[in-house]
Design a protein around this nucleic acid. Sequence first.
DNA 1: TTGAAAGCGGTACCAT
DNA 2: ATGGTACCGCTTTCAA
Lengths: 342, 342
Amino acid sequence: MAVTLKQIAELAGVSRGTVDRALYDRGRVNPEVAAHIKQIAAELGYQPNRAGRALALAKNPIRIGVIIQSVETPFIQLVLEGVHAAADELGEMGVQVMIRQIQSIDIPAVQRTMDELVEAGCGGIALLPAESSALRIKIRRLHEERQLPIVTFNSDIADTPRLCFVGLNNRLSGQTAAGLMHAIVHRPGPVLAITGHKDKRAMQERANGFNEEIRTAYPSLTALPTEYCYDDAARAYDITRRAASHYSSLAGILICTNGQDGVCRALAERGLTGKIPVIGYDLTPDNCNNLRSGRVDFLLGQDSFSQGYRPIMLLFDYLFTGKAPESEYVYTDIVIKTRYLV
Amino acid sequence: MAVTLKQIAELAGVSRGTVDRALYDRGRVNPEVAAHIKQIAAELGYQPNRAGRALALAKNPIRIGVIIQSVETPFIQLVLEGVHAAADELGEMGVQVMIRQIQSIDIPAVQRTMDELVEAGCGGIALLPAESSALRIKIRRLHEERQLPIVTFNSDIADTPRLCFVGLNNRLSGQTAAGLMHAIVHRPGPVLAITGHKDKRAMQERANGFNEEIRTAYPSLTALPTEYCYDDAARAYDITRRAASHYSSLAGILICTNGQDGVCRALAERGLTGKIPVIGYDLTPDNCNNLRSGRVDFLLGQDSFSQGYRPIMLLFDYLFTGKAPESEYVYTDIVIKTRYLV
DNA sequence: TTGAAAGCGGTACCAT
DNA sequence: ATGGTACCGCTTTCAA
């Protein structure tokens, strides 16, 4: 049987309340008594019982806010599954998870929502943000004025006093893609990385990691300059068509973002499906279909479930036990999927 | 705020105790009253509070037994990490997880330990077994005589009234390996699967899945007859040496089990490292080193952490909420690792 | 500075 | 068949 506050209280000859105040430094306890109590607790290996604590906290329940942008995209839908799983799980412990979904990127809406959630008594906020100096300032202010713990996820706002970031190591994922590409390409030639926006850091990182790794580690391949499809299948189609006709020896394509269907269509029309390897990102339903049908060779997943689940759990741990994440960067697994695994 | 028994009791004009008996069919309650109570609960979307239940159950705490064989192997050490994580987590909820480690395969010891754990009041047992009719009978008896829920993990005992099996889909992992092999092999030729014991079903399945998939899906490759190294690096070394000299066009090797170092050594001695692709299993420290250094191209992991963690959690869910796993087979993820990811 | 007590949600036992 | 009550471990408030 695990040791309880009551047992410590009896051994120390004080009341449970005093033990509680001593162990958690809540003040109003004689320093010597406190030291004695802490010693006993340490000797007995006291571990607080979560159920007991959760129940006691139910009087003023922990509230956690979640803000997600771009909810209309297939990938974010996957992230939402993790969010809801965490919300359900914590709900059974009496924790309230307040989820706010925002269409596309809408910084003013995010700012308003953050205020609303703080007002509603949220002790922490999980935020799927976007590059924005306004948000950077907002996070800093909430941290300074209210010590509000904030976890960014999926996309980060660096140099911010957030508790941590949960998401993909994009550069490493690009390097991984380079390794895969080299493994499956059977002849020398140019390889092309297509990514989303020039000003989206995460997308750039994927392509950069890929290109640099190709250059430094795989000299039989040459990395063409990155192309941008702006998350648009039609543009990806055009880019692919042009590249395939311009470089007759085109050896492989990495598509870092939405637009995968365009790439596949362009290759199919020229009878190049299966001849020019394609590596893509994200396990959305459409992408998985491409993988199953052989139009794509590998998909790099970013464990979207964890990206929704863990931020909330990390905030809960922080609010419930005071334990902060070990690192400022909590990277989710880079998962490699083939047609056998989706 | 979540709805509680007390609220339902007030609405129904009865006491908390009656609501409890009604909702959980504990008897001793007027059928009409019970129906009314259940209706109210359904309308309000009542979800029991886990913390409350856990605390109430602390009077006669849930005990879960865990039996693990072959603890001396590197792979099982990884599984143990998951076991301990689950034990720690549940320990904070007042659940007692009793872990029994057994060296190598020792069926009599397993039988004794099962008796001991049942005697000690375990409400369920997670078991890492081995092919054995004695264990099959034991599981059946414990099920029939005491309705004891048992979860097998890592290796299964089929046709048994166990709650479920948690582990790898070995056949699918072999097929996945075949797909990878075909993707990275650049020329026609024979490929060789080396596995452990003839009488270990799981190991056979991996090799069979590989060979069959090669035969049916990848005619440019030919699957050589499976070789057996009995988990021994020296034998794997011999097998590899012989195969490499006998088949000058040997195109790839799949090593399904321990002995990977022997394969790598044999290839290195003949200057074939990187020339003949190698795919291996399990993310043990040694294997990860082989991957990092380029002696192995892919490792198939079997999410060893989950293999230790989930059986215990599934038993807990069953004992705590009565919810059984959705399927008799709970497959853990097949993870593909390259040198970038270990 | 300390203790006593109430209460969180659910379970179980004992009266009635 | 039903209600009342004690209790699980912890937090918090109120008295002393």
